[in-house]
Amino acid sequence: MSYFTSHFSTFGHEFWGLLVGGVANGVVYAMVAIGYTMVYGVLRLINFAHSEIFTSGAFASFFLMKALVGGSTPTATESVIYVILGVLVGGLAGALAALALERVAYRPLRRRNAPKLAYLISAIGASYFLFNFYGKEFGRINLSMDAPFTNNTVFTIFGAPVQMYYIVIVIVGVIMLVSLDRFVAKSKLGRGIRAVAQDAETASLMGVNIDRTISLTFVLGGFLGGVAGFLFAIPIGVVYTMGFTPALKAFSAAVLGGIGNLRGAVIGGLLLGIVESFSVAFFDGVYIDVVAFAVLVLVLMVRPTGILGERLGRSA
């Protein structure tokens, strides 16, 4: 009894702070979840090496920040430039890793019409290769990132402080997610992606180059995943195994929203981030993952195809 009353009394006070933190984490999950969902949409397979795409973005931007910031305290203008450069370099590293992964680990299997299990093994192999490679090259310890901006409180909502870090995540994330959504819904290449997701053979009869479209899908998902790696690493730094847990959660978020569904990935990511954040108000912090995954299982029991259902084809 006292446990709940004490937690409830702080809950009202903490609500807005938890919401802001939850939304920010949710945006990061959503950006990673998009990569799982897009690849699933066109290939009907889970890219289990996506965690290393996230890590690639984090490491690339880590080295960039080291070179740019190098222990200094950036001015406001410098901060804006550093964040933009971090996004570009993290995103490009993620995109390149995704592109290489598709070429090396998946395309040869596709050429031979390999069974789905072969892709899974290939993905696990690529994932082990990549994170161990990072561990060997960059050390197996956590390295803290040079902060591209000073994380002070920018404003408060109902007494809850909102830090610069959360604002950066939400701005970058919203720009990325909305651009991707519009690109897939409205552009010609986006239409090509949707066509391949709905009926690849017929798409090729229309003149869609399937190999190129699959590469494009990996690149887009890889870019967002790499940017997510950068954002994630800003407060906590980088380590070779850093991709595992957030990617597993993002994958769950994609399933939660409806795998193959772009907006589902965003909703799933946000929901997971917010649930995690609020679970801290009711339960001890160590239960955060237990609560998050309990919610996942509950939602899937009620809606086995996720909140929005499976389909990348939808333009919406």
């Binding site: 010609k188 239409r191 090509g192 949707r194 066509a195 709905q198 009926d199 053979e201 017929t202 798409a203 009869l205 229309m206 003149g207 869609v208 389909r311 084809g313 939808r314 333009s315």
Partner: peptide, 17 residues
């Protein structure tokens, strides 16, 4: 083999891909 999740107009646009 119409693209079921695309509008009529988008299907025609696919024909001109």
């Amino acid at each position: 083999r119409i693209f079921p999740e695309m509008t009529v107009q988008e299907n025609l646009e696919m024909g001109a891909f």
